[in-house]
Design a protein around this nucleic acid. Structure first.
Lengths: 223, 223
DNA sequence: TCCGGGCTTTTTGTATACCAAAAATAGAGT
DNA sequence: ACTCTATTTTTGGTATACAAAAAGCCCGGA
């Protein structure tokens, strides 16, 4: 049964196509390297080619597909280089976000959902809801960026978070407990307004994630 | 005389529309806050609405327009906050790029067009070709990012460089000679493989540009 | 005069049909 | 097997149409 757009018809078709194809890519149903044909997708999802084109454009912008003039879109092939580049840019932006978040909290801004997300993660770990753990962990990182208050920064990391979701889905992570502990420390530093500490904690937390992901991806890549 | 797409017809229409509208915005012909109507643009540039839509999507992605569902696109209004956010993110990414570029040069990678761009800038300053000075200065910064070798980083700074072009067009810069001297030092550090020096030089060069731009924009904003 | 609610117009988002040109593919000949 | 050509597929683009949401307008009432 091909998945159709029978659900909420009030939402923009392009957005729905984007979400569905993205799910397909992240879940591995669209394998790396396969062509995404406009007509194919438009028939599959019962929409015209226009929303499909828009969705593909956004998928390219978020790093999931590559398009070539007159040859359309292809699901990107993830390489170890991609992972390394992602972690390098994350180190640039997310550490700054953590510092700024701490500065703003120290200046009296509210701490947002940071603590709440942490508690939910703890619960999800206890209940062994792996998918939720991954999702909440990502939300935690996104919340820090949001707390930085820099809208351009928020825009800039969006494509990174898309890639992270994809890569973390392919390559298994290190211990959830270890990560949660680091998140807790980082959360405390931010809520305590300790900018430098937040910065270094964010740095090590991100950098500690690199090797496990590289190792995990190397396994799924080279069989 | 409405500018039409009579020139090279081999290039993608969407790209041409993107360039033309971008020029219009940067040059101030499309004032901040004006609506960009699809039909208006498609008639003005003698194309159908599809390339226009694609162009507008890219303009949004690059920070020149804002779109709202069912209400179309509006030229963004630049604020002092935008400028500050831009400089903060630039400090994150371009300093890292400078460091990486130096590391790679030290590891034997070629130094690219860095020296060449610097020489051209000097010539342009001597000839008083202001537009070229601005363009070459931007190209210098872009070249450093390119030399970092991080493709994701290159992608990530693209929207920043678009905004820079816009802002620097509105708000006049500080002395070209001063900037060129800083570029020279930075260039030497990178080509000499001095990573830490390149980092700090990039940092101060960017940060020194902030105040003048803020001041310049404040003048054009508040009459 | 100013305000608010309903009516009209405009504009977006999408669908459909169509076309030229480039790519991919199949096929024929060597 | 290999290359060159012919056929098919696919993209990028145009034109047109239409429902629905915004925006603008008008008019009556406080």
């Amino acid at each position: 049964m091909p998945e159709t757009l029978t659900g909420r018809d009030d939402e923009a078709r392009a957005e729905q196509v984007y979400q569905l194809v993205l799910e397909g890519i992240v879940a591995g149903r669209y394998e790396q390297g396969v062509r995404l044909r406009e007509r194919e997708l438009s028939e599959l999802y019962n929409v015209s080619r226009i929303p499909v084109r828009e969705a593909i454009q956004r998928l390219e912008q978020d790093g999931f597909v590559e398009t070539f003039p007159r040859r359309g879109a292809v699901v990107r092939k993830l390489t170890l280089t991609d992972v390394n580049e992602l972690f390098d840019v994350r180190l640039c932006l997310e550490t700054f976000a953590a510092r700024m978040a701490a500065v703003r909290v120290a200046a009296g801004e509210p701490g947002g959902r940071l603590q709440e997300l942490l508690d939910d993660t703890r619960q999800a770990i206890d209940d062994d809801r792996t998918d939720d753990v991954v999702r909440l962990s990502a939300a935690f990182h996104a919340e820090i960026v949001r707390l930085s208050g820099n809208r351009l920064l928020i825009e800039s990391v969006k494509p990174l978070f898309g890639r992270m979701r994809w890569i973390f889905g392919l390559a298994h992570n290190r211990s959830n407990e270890l990560q949660r502990d680091e998140h807790m420390e980082l959360c405390n530093a931010i809520l305590g307004g300790k900018a430098d500490l937040a910065y270094t904690l964010a740095y090590s937390h991100i950098e500690l994630g690199r090797e496990p992901v590289l190792k995990g991806l190397a396994e799924t890549l080279g069989p």
